[in-house]
Design a protein around this nucleic acid. Structure first.
Lengths: 213, 213
DNA sequence: TAGATTGTTAATCGATTAACAATC
DNA sequence: TAGATTGTTAATCGATTAACAATC
């Protein structure tokens, strides 16, 4: 199976978190082996698709038997980069930033919010036993000190580009952007856009079509 | 151009919120006309794709000139069901539920959080001048009274299916689900899944590939 | 009329599905 | 060996792109 500079369908990658969660459940239920049929049904894809997705990363199953839960789980962790802790810096200690800082789903997937940053002096200081809001000017220094890898942009739209440029200059190679703007960054920087409004407006569109407004 | 029971590419629909926001900006800048090239560049798609997306909904531009900002904006509002207010009920008044209730991005797109619901008595009562947390038992009654259309599920994973079933029984025809589980609901119910972890793990995957962990 | 830009067609690309040979 | 289920191939489906005729 291919390895190296090969890249995989975007849609495939986005299904791995679902597989990860299903497998985690099986693991906690002491289920050692699952078939593609059983697991596919649980996450809402076809068995064919599940097997195809996994096959991009090697022969991960046992013919005639199914998939070994613990083994597949460990493989998926590596695929998703969850085999080691990733430290996040949240830039923008507003409502959204604080909500994310307190969101347990991140830690459950090996992602740790290790620091927040803000330009507003009133927000500087500890927010609990483990977490601090730093002045934005300390971004580069704290990145190095704390081993921060991913900059989470939760500032208002108008400030997002400035913050993105700053984060790149501070040495971050990955941005998770919650502001509804396209960011201009060097091509080697990984940017993931998060836009909740897309989801609810898609729903609204379907609602309008089905019910005739 | 087709109209009626026709359905459109999912990917197309998910780009309309981006077009909407770009057009809103042009509108506020008193720009009356934009070309597909200019607008595509702003939202990060190709001009071809933008024109194709719009063409599913009719001939919305002017050959030789471009697109009339105000006109296209009004068309997109209808397409996305934003031509009238949609009222949301948030079920689960925890951190996430409250954060969403205070999120201005919803109101900016014609979506109004009109009530919250929770089983925890300690959370019942007003949370500000306009908003109330109701006992979950009042879901059906308040849906009718307030004209609630969309149920937003922000309860823990373990309670999500129960809440979904309850919401359907209470007369909701659309669910916006933040719990990381597949929901079993009748086929006529519209369900939109929201899963922030997918985004950050996709980023983590790219990070692991590029940097070799 | 000349210049510009849309709307649409056809070609290309990518993702999903069904079927089955490989193999546990 | 017989039964089960994976891994993979080929066919199908859907989405994107490039090119250009239509038309403002």
């Amino acid at each position: 199976m291919p390895e190296g500079l090969v890249t995989f369908p975007k849609a495939t990658i986005s299904r791995f978190p679902l597989y990860f969660r299903a497998l985690t459940e099986y693991y906690h239920q002491n289920i050692a082996l699952v078939s593609s049929e059983e697991m596919a049904q649980k996450v809402g894809v076809t068995p064919s698709q599940l097997r195809k997705d996994l096959s991009y990363f090697g022969s991960l199953g046992i013919r005639g038997a199914g998939y070994d839960v613990a083994y597949l789980l460990s493989k998926i962790k590596v695929i998703l980069g969850m085999d080691r802790k990733r430290r996040l810096a949240i830039i923008g200690a507003g409502k959204l930033g604080l909500a994310l800082a307190g969101y347990s789903g991140l830690k459950q997937h090996g992602l740790e919010v290790s620091a927040l940053f803000d330009t507003d002096q009133a927000k500087w200081g500890p927010i609990n036993e483990q977490l601090m809001v730093f002045p934005l000017t300390e971004l580069a220094a704290q990145r190095e000190r704390l081993g921060l890898e991913i900059a989470v942009i939760t500032v208002p739209k108008a400030a997002a580009q400035k913050v993105a440029t700053l984060a790149v200059a501070a040495g971050f190679s990955a941005l998770w952007n919650f502001a509804p703007v396209r960011l201009e960054v060097p091509p080697e920087i990984i940017v993931q856009y998060e836009d909740i409004v897309v989801g609810i407006l898609t729903l609204s569109h379907h609602l309008a079509r089905k019910l005739g407004t």
